[in-house]
Amino acid sequence: MTAPRIVVDVENGVPPWRQVRDQLVRLINGGVLPVGSRLPTIRQLAADLGLAAGTVARAYRELETSGVLTTGRRQGTVVAALPSHAPEPLSAAAAEFVAIARSLGASEGEALNAVRAHYLGE
């Protein structure tokens, strides 16, 4: 089974498990992975992405907890439902940015200015 189109950037500050989870949510919401689609095994997806199996397992576990995925012995991991309570990707990205900005000691104004500069392409 080939892995869905997921790209993990280990240098962007967002934990890899969250990148995997958020991209799976987008693929499911976008219809690329409809309900009933079988996902790669944890080991296979981890190998395809160059990640530790525990990283992919955490992403799958988060989606199982919210009812988006189910895992069974015979069928493997399958899309069970459309994400309804999954965090909105922009909000999740903003939360990650705020955490990083705070860890760097940036003030709210500095953080907002950095976002504005990048948003406007400056």
Rank of each mutant, 00 (worst) to 15 (best):
residue 83 P to D: 03
residue 91 S to Q: 14
residue 87 P to T: 10
residue 54 G to D: 15
residue 46 A to W: 08
residue 87 P to W: 06
residue 50 G to K: 11
residue 57 A to P: 00
residue 37 S to Y: 04
residue 77 T to N: 09
residue 51 L to K: 08
residue 49 L to K: 04
residue 72 G to A: 15
residue 82 L to T: 09
residue 63 L to K: 10
residue 52 A to L: 06
residue 76 G to H: 00
residue 89 P to W: 09
residue 60 Y to R: 02
residue 89 P to L: 04
residue 82 L to N: 08
residue 57 A to I: 03
residue 75 Q to S: 12
residue 57 A to V: 00
residue 51 L to N: 10
residue 84 S to D: 12
residue 71 T to H: 11
residue 77 T to Y: 06
residue 80 A to G: 03
residue 70 T to M: 08
residue 48 D to S: 11
residue 47 A to Y: 10
residue 62 E to D: 15
residue 39 L to K: 02
residue 69 L to W: 10
residue 66 S to R: 13
residue 67 G to R: 02
residue 44 Q to V: 07
residue 73 R to N: 09
residue 48 D to R: 06
residue 41 T to G: 13
residue 88 E to F: 11
residue 63 L to M: 15
residue 83 P to Y: 01
residue 50 G to A: 07
residue 69 L to A: 09
residue 50 G to N: 04
residue 38 R to W: 04
residue 74 R to F: 13
residue 63 L to F: 04
residue 46 A to I: 05
residue 62 E to I: 12
residue 84 S to K: 13
residue 83 P to R: 01
residue 38 R to E: 10
residue 72 G to H: 13
residue 37 S to C: 07
residue 85 H to K: 14
residue 69 L to M: 12
residue 86 A to T: 01
residue 66 S to D: 11
residue 69 L to I: 06
residue 66 S to F: 03
residue 45 L to W: 03
residue 91 S to C: 07
residue 71 T to V: 08
residue 38 R to M: 12
residue 37 S to P: 04
residue 38 R to S: 09
residue 81 A to D: 15
residue 64 E to R: 05
residue 86 A to S: 11
residue 48 D to A: 14
residue 43 R to S: 11
residue 42 I to K: 12
residue 83 P to F: 01
residue 38 R to Q: 14
residue 46 A to T: 00
residue 56 V to F: 06
residue 64 E to S: 10
residue 73 R to Y: 14
residue 53 A to G: 03
residue 85 H to A: 15
residue 70 T to P: 00
residue 57 A to Q: 11
residue 68 V to G: 11
residue 56 V to I: 05
residue 64 E to F: 00
residue 87 P to R: 10
residue 66 S to M: 13
residue 62 E to P: 03
residue 91 S to V: 15
residue 77 T to G: 05
residue 42 I to D: 02
residue 52 A to T: 04
residue 47 A to V: 13
